[in-house]
Design a protein around this nucleic acid. Structure first.
Lengths: 347, 347
DNA sequence: TTGAAAGCGCTAACAA
DNA sequence: TTGTTAGCGCTTTCAA
C-alpha cells in the first residue's frame, strides 16, 4: 500500500475513497463532514478506506465550492521588531482557535512589494485582512483591497476599516507628561520613519500637545542612516552629537521600544548616564525592555487583548455577526515607570 | 459602477469579464496569463472590462485546476524569539521573490496544536513545508506530513527531509572551547527545554565533547519555572542560587541568545559581574545581542544565507529541479567574541 | 440511508 | 486569433 501511494504521486481524492469503500462520493463527503445519518457500518468502511489511502480532504476544492476560505491575511510591518512578532503570535493562536489560518506578507522592503503582497492575499480570497502596521500609503492599499472583505487595523490605523489599538495620542501625551513632571524642559521625540504612518503621527501629536501645554518647544529626531546619522531639526549629524550638543535634549520619547533601545545604546557609547543625564521613554513594552540591563520606562500595550479583540472582530465580520459601520476599539495603555527616567539634570 | 459592485457582494468572475468584453472565457484567461497571440484590441477590451469590474483572478480555482499551489507552509517554534522572527522574515522575502506565499503555524502551545497546524497546512495543499524548529516529536509530525511533499528543516533537524543549518555540534564545541581557553573549569550548559529537540541535542553534545576533551565535568542547567526556578543536576533551585553557590559555574554556554540574556539578567540581579565573575556565551546573534548593554559573545548563524538556501532548495524540489536523496547543507557559523566572556576568576 | 448530478472559477487541450 | 469543452475535488441539493 505504502509503496503504491508513493508511486502514484498524487494524493488520494474523495473519489478514490468512494471506490474503495464501494459507496458514492456523497457518502464519503458525509462521513468527512460528520453529517449525521450515515449507517455506522458504512461509516466504518469509509473510514477504513480513508486510512488505507491516507486520504486528506483537499481544502482548495472545498474552498472553491463553498465560496469561502478560512484564511486570514496578515500584513506585518516588520517581523524583526519583537512587538510585531509577539502580536503576530497572539493573532495566530486566536485565529487558529477560530479555525482560521494565517497567510502573511511582510512589507518591509518597499511599497510595491507590499501592494503585490496584498493583491496576492486578495487573489487567494482571504476571508479577512489584518493590518499590523504598514509601510505604503493608504490610498493605494485601499484600492488594492477593494471593498469586499473585512479589514481590521491592529495597533495602527488608516482611516478605513475597523481599528483595534490603544489611544496612541493619549498614550504619547502621558509618556511625555511623565517627562515634563520630572522637570525636563528639552524633550525630543524620536520618530519612526518607516512604519505606522498614522499611529506614528498620533504619537507625535500627543507628544507635541503635551509640550505645547507646558510651553515647551518640540524637537523631532529620526534616523537618517542607522546606526550613525540622525536628522534633527532639518540637519544631519551623528546621534552622539545630537545627544551631547549644548542644546541637547535631557529626555527622549521614542516612537517605540526598539528606537528607545537605540537611544540607550547611543547614550552608552557617548558615556551619557541614563537616567541621570538622559531620560528615555519607549512605547510597546517588548520583552527585552523588562530585563535589568534595559529596564525601560515605556508605554505598554495590552498585546494579547488587542490581538484577541481584533480576531474576534474580524471573525465576527466574516461570519456576519458583526455588521455596520467601522468600529474603533481603544484599549487601555499603561505607563510602566522603570529605570530609564529620572529627574532632569540641573542646567 | 462602484455602487453595484458593492451591492453585488460577490467578486466578479472570469465569466463576467468575458460577457462584458464580449469574448470567451478562454480569451480572458489568455489575457490574464499573458499568453501571446491575443489581438491587441481584444486585449484592451478585456483589460477595460477587468478594470471596470475590478476583477481579480481567483487563485483558489486556479490552484484546483493546476493541481498545485504557490503556498509554502512554515512551522515556527516561537515567533517571540527574535531569531525565528528574523528567519521568518528572510524566508518570507525569498519566498515572495520566487512567487510563493507563506502560510504559517506557530507551534508554541502544545504538540496537538502543532499537529493540527501541520494537518491544516497539508490539507491546504501547500507545495512544501519548512520547519523552523518544532515542538512535537518527530514521528507524529512525520506521519501527519506523509510522504508527498518536499520538507526542509531550517536551523533544525528531525532526521527526515532536507536540512539547512549550521553544524550545531561543532559550533557548540567551539563556543565551549572558547570558554575553556579562557581558563574556565566549571562551565555549565543552559539548555532550552522547549525547542529544537535535535539541534538542541547536537549543541549539548558539542558542549559535552569539548568538556570531556578538557577533562571537565558537564553540568546542565534548564528553566524549571521561568524566571525564578532552574533545574540543575536534578534538583530545583532559584537561578540566583545556581549562579552563586560555592560550586557555581564561572561560565555558561547558553543554548540560544534569549537564554543567555536570561543569565545576564539573573547575574545582574545576583550582583555578579559579567565577565569578571561569570562568562556567558550565547547562540544565534539576535539583534539585541549587539547593543552595548548586552554585547554578548555568541555563535552567529548566517541567517540570510540559511533562509535563501532553504527557499532555493524547497522551490527546487517543488519544481523538480532538485531531486534525489535528502540533502544536508551545513553553513559556516562564526564565534563573535564580544564582552560577556573573559578569563576565569581566580578560584 | 445512499446516490446522481450540477456546479464553484479557472486552465488547457483542441477545434474552428 | 478565438471559442468550445472537459475537467480539477469537492459540497449540496434532490431523488431514489
Amino acid at each position: 500500500m505504502e509503496r503504491s501511494r508513493r508511486a502514484r504521486q498524487k494524493p488520494a481524492t474523495i473519489h478514490d475513497v468512494a471506490r474503495l469503500a464501494r459507496v458514492s462520493k456523497s457518502t464519503v463527503s458525509n462521513v468527512i463532514r460528520d453529517v449525521p445519518g450515515v449507517n455506522p457500518e458504512t461509516r466504518e468502511r469509509v473510514q477504513e478506506a480513508i486510512r488505507t489511502l491516507e486520504y486528506r480532504p483537499n481544502v482548495v476544492a472545498r474552498q472553491l465550492v463553498q465560496q469561502r476560505t478560512t484564511l486570514l491575511g496578515i500584513v506585518i510591518g516588520d517581523l524583526s521588531n519583537p512587538f510585531y512578532a509577539e502580536m503576530a503570535k497572539f493573532v495566530e493562536s486566536f485565529a487558529a482557535a477560530h479555525g482560521y489560518q494565517l497567510m502573511f506578507c511582510n512589507t518591509q522592503v518597499d511599497e510595491n512589494t507590499e501592494l503585490d503582497g496584498i493583491r496576492s492575499l486578495i487573489e487567494h480570497r482571504v476571508a479577512g485582512l489584518l493590518f499590523l502596521a504598514y509601510a505604503g500609503d493608504a490610498e493605494s492599499a485601499r484600492q488594492a483591497v477593494g471593498e469586499q472583505l473585512p479589514i481590521v487595523f491592529l495597533t495602527c490605523d488608516a482611516g478605513w476599516g475597523d481599528v483595534v489599538a490603544v489611544d496612541d495620542f493619549a498614550a504619547a501625551r502621558a509618556g511625555t507628561q511623565h517627562l515634563i513632571d520630572l522637570g525636563h524642559r528639552r524633550i525630543a521625540y524620536f520618530a519612526d520613519t518607516v512604519h505606522e504612518a498614522r499611529a506614528e503621527r498620533a504619537r507625535q501629536g500627543g507628544y507635541a500637545l503635551a509640550l505645547q501645554e507646558a510651553g515647551l518647544t518640540p524637537s523631532i529626531l529620526r534616523w537618517h542612516d542607522r546606526p550613525q546619522l540622525v536628522e534633527a531639526g532639518g540637519s544631519i549629524c551623528t546621534i552622539q552629537t545630537a545627544l551631547t550638543a549644548p542644546e541637547r535634549p535631557t529626555a527622549i520619547f521614542a516612537a517605540n521600544d526598539l528606537h528607545a533601545v537605540d537611544i540607550l545604546d547611543a547614550a552608552d557609547q557617548a558615556s551619557l548616564r541614563v537616567p541621570e543625564d538622559l531620560s528615555v521613554v519607549g512605547f510597546d513594552d517588548i520583552a527585552i525592555s523588562r530585563i535589568a540591563r534595559i529596564n525601560l520606562t515605556t508605554i505598554a500595550q495590552p498585546k494579547e487583548a488587542l490581538a484577541r479583540l481584533a480576531v474576534d472582530l474580524i471573525v465576527g465580520r466574516i461570519g456576519g455577526k458583526v455588521q455596520g459601520a467601522h468600529q474603533r476599539h481603544s484599549l487601555p495603555f499603561t505607563l510602566l515607570q522603570r529605570r530609564t527616567t529620572g529627574p532632569s539634570p540641573a542646567p
